[in-house]
């Protein structure tokens, strides 16, 4: 009874903000869909209805498919690497040791630096002729001549992935640390009394209990890394010969360098669709872990 009398005013009260968020989220989507179905020039002037021609253009573009494949490679390795490294880091930071506060701050610190700045510093360090990395390797006698790390896919892309992992660790470790600290200590005490080894405790207790947090960390990271622009753009701009382009860097070139706003809109819709699947997965996972929690 009480509920029903309250539902209507409550709905009415949230209606304005609901409409506003629908507008804020909905209008850009509508605009991108509209642009992707028309011929639109550099100046945003809409010409003829183009049907699916912009999508067809993309599907005929080998660089698009190469970038798509590379985006998958990039996302899987960066997120995978970040999770693999963050789990032990989070476990360590969860232990009680002298200077833990400082250690936590150090791990979180890279978070405070803008991604573009980090990438620029790396670009300087990796410069073949006067970079710090070559200078160090040279002095150690490991190199006998300059190596241009960013000159080819074989070295440039793994380095970009490594930097991607590095900058993803603070966020991932924070999420996992939050999960770890929610596990009560007495469970471990009980297990220890029952004779479980450290590894057994980790494998059969910590990991299962951390599962919801791992899932959230994975999905949030996937969304973030999939769309991550600065590292690759600053280091290589997708070069040489588009070999380090991922979807978002190619999208930027299409829209702002080549002025193909219509094809770029079609491409961002495809990226949106891919991410939508992940977001749906995120909601399902979050709900499932909530149910488990309750």
């Amino acid at each position: 009874m009480l509920d029903r009398t309250r539902t209507l005013p409550a709905l009415l009260l949230i209606l304005p903000s609901l409409a506003l968020s629908l507008w804020i989220i909905g209008y850009p989507i509508y605009d991108v869909v509209y642009t992707s179905l028309h011929e639109v020039n550099r100046f945003g002037r809409v010409r003829d209805f183009a049907g699916l021609a912009n999508f067809a253009k993309l599907f005929a573009d080998p660089i698009f498919f190469a970038s798509l494949w590379r985006t998958v490679l990039w996302t899987v390795t960066v997120v995978g690497g970040a999770i693999l490294l963050s789990v032990p880091i989070a476990v360590m930071l969860n232990e009680d040791f002298y200077g833990r506060g400082i250690a936590r701050v150090i791990v979180m610190l890279p978070w405070a630096i803008s991604l573009a700045m980090t990438a620029i510093v790396w670009r300087w360090s990796l410069n073949g002729q006067y970079g710090m990395i070559n200078a160090t390797l040279f002095q150690l006698g490991i190199l006998d001549g300059p190596v241009e790390w960013l000159a080819s896919f074989d070295t440039a892309f793994p380095i970009e992935i490594a930097i991607g992992i590095l900058v993803s660790i603070p966020f991932t470790a924070t999420v996992l640390l939050g999960g770890l600290s929610s596990i009560p200590a007495d469970v471990y005490e009980a297990a220890t009394i029952d004779g479980a080894t450290g590894w057994q405790r980790f494998r059969w207790m910590t990991l299962p209990l951390m599962k919801p947090f791992l899932q959230i960390a994975i999905v949030l990271n996937v969304i973030n890394v999939f769309n991550s622009f600065p590292i690759i753009w600053v280091l290589t701009q997708g070069e040489p010969a588009n070999s380090t382009d991922i979807l978002v860097t190619y999208l930027y070139k299409l829209a702002f360098r080549y002025g193909r706003l219509d094809t770029a809109a079609a491409m961002s819709l495809i990226m949106f669709a891919i991410l939508l699947v992940f977001t749906a997965a995120y909601i399902v996972l979050a709900r499932r872990s909530e149910e488990k929690g309750a």
């Binding site: 410069n127 073949g128 002729q129 190596v147 241009e148 000159a151 080819s152 070069e239």
Partner: peptide, 21 residues
């Protein structure tokens, strides 16, 4: 030329000249 020129943009190439290299 300098090794692996696909790693050198215009500024890098000009720097080599400015450094006398």
């Amino acid at each position: 030329t300098q090794p692996s020129p696909t790693g050198s943009n215009r500024q890098d190439m000009e720097s080599l000249f400015k450094q006398g290299r």
